[in-house]
Design a binder for these strands. Sequence first.
DNA 1: ATCCCGAGGG
DNA 2: CCCTCTGGAT
Length: 212
Amino acid sequence: MLSGKKTVEALDRMEVMFPDAKGELDHESPFQYLIAVILSAQATDVSVNKATPSLFSAYPTAETLARAPLEDVMSRIKTIGLYKNKAKNIIKTAQLLVNEYEGKVPETIEEMVKLPGVGKKTANVVAGDAFGVPAIAVDTHVERVAKRLRICKQSASVVEVEEVLMKKIPKERWIQAHHTIILFGRYHCVARKPKCEGCPLLDMCVEGQRNV
DNA sequence: ATCCCGAGGG
DNA sequence: CCCTCTGGAT
């Protein structure tokens, strides 16, 4: 297993490759960011950014989305995938925000997880980016990279991956580390044909040395 | 463990 | 054609 020190070293090298990693979902408010992150489940950010201009021009706030017809919302996000569940969830979430939180996004992970369509990963992302709450959201990229680098066990659940990363990475780096690892996974350590040849992390990666 | 579910890449 | 994409609810 990769030690805490080595994990930080790996993170340092990723940051050299992706110096200003940040979220790539288009939005103009915490509310819109929350909706965009909900929509991004099992979808690329590119496909989400393609649909949200239409969605947010019609329904820019929680108050407007709370009153939106289901069919219309579905048609605007249909290209994203999983659109039936997502349409229902974002309308219900908007209604809950209006009824329980004065139309604003709650700032704690515990409150956000109560919203339909919002799990731990989504809550962590929004809390970190919108409100600066330290968190490491474990998505498909973070899980894949952590396991390839042997930062955690291959059998680790997403919750266990999160726990290990929080233990091995200093808290003040959690939010940035999340984005850095995402981009490293999305553009370099990709799922299908990872660019192991010439990878700056090759010397500390069992999986990579196996591939070269 | 299974389902949801369209678009893009290889 | 098959795999993957910033998962969540049942």
